[in-house]
Amino acid sequence: MKILVCISHVPDTTSKINFVENNTQFDTQGVQYIINPNDEFGLTRAMWFKEKEGATVDVINVGGPATESTLRKALAIGADNAIRIHTEALDATQVAKEIVAVIQENGYDLIIAGRESIDYNGGMVPGMIAALTGMNYLNNCIRLEIEGQNATAVREMDGGKETVTTPLPLVIGAQKGLVEESDLRIPNMRGIMMARKKPLSVLEPQHGDAQVQTIAYEKPAPKGAVKLVEPENIDQLISLLHNEAKVI
């Protein structure tokens, strides 16, 4: 089985978010990058298929040279090959089309992408890949088993779960539950050494520029200070809720 895991290179969850250039650019100064958490749940499940069932695991990213450290981490965790499409990722259509070109070239049985990346929260790439390739698609995937050419997967839905079976090839949108946080792997020292020697191919983009242009980013209004009301001052509480918070 050949697996492709799509890896987004995203700011660490504790990063301070700021914008520059008239609020049109994300300020990367001092920001640490990580594997997008939803992608990491998917990668960890892919490693399980590699170790238990002999799957090969490729990882792919659409982005500049700075994203290679994130791809190397995926290689250190155990992926076999990494591919970077050398262009700035600006919109979901562009990213999906570039990934699809690689899928068509190499042929994969299973495509795993996080259900969304935690930077721009677009959540569109796996669905677009499925649409462009005609593969089956299952989003919000919290369990995945594969037997032969068939997958049994569980999808999280509002207030419940849905279990489905589907033939491969398949695209899934991974999330927590596919593996647990405690299953996530820290690259071991030997893995880091080996990652240096594993192939990381850089390919030129096939599909031209993005169609979407960002006009401006805006941060949410800062949270106000907390006001504590003594339990006996019900009138004050009602007045605050009515006049300040305007919720009653």
Binding site: E68, S69, R72, K73, A76, I186, P187, N188, M189, I192, M193, A195, R196
Partner: peptide
């Protein structure tokens, strides 16, 4: 180096 950073991060 990238490897040193990877060790530090791990």
């Amino acid at each position: 180096s990238e490897e040193h950073k990877a060790v530090q991060q791990a």
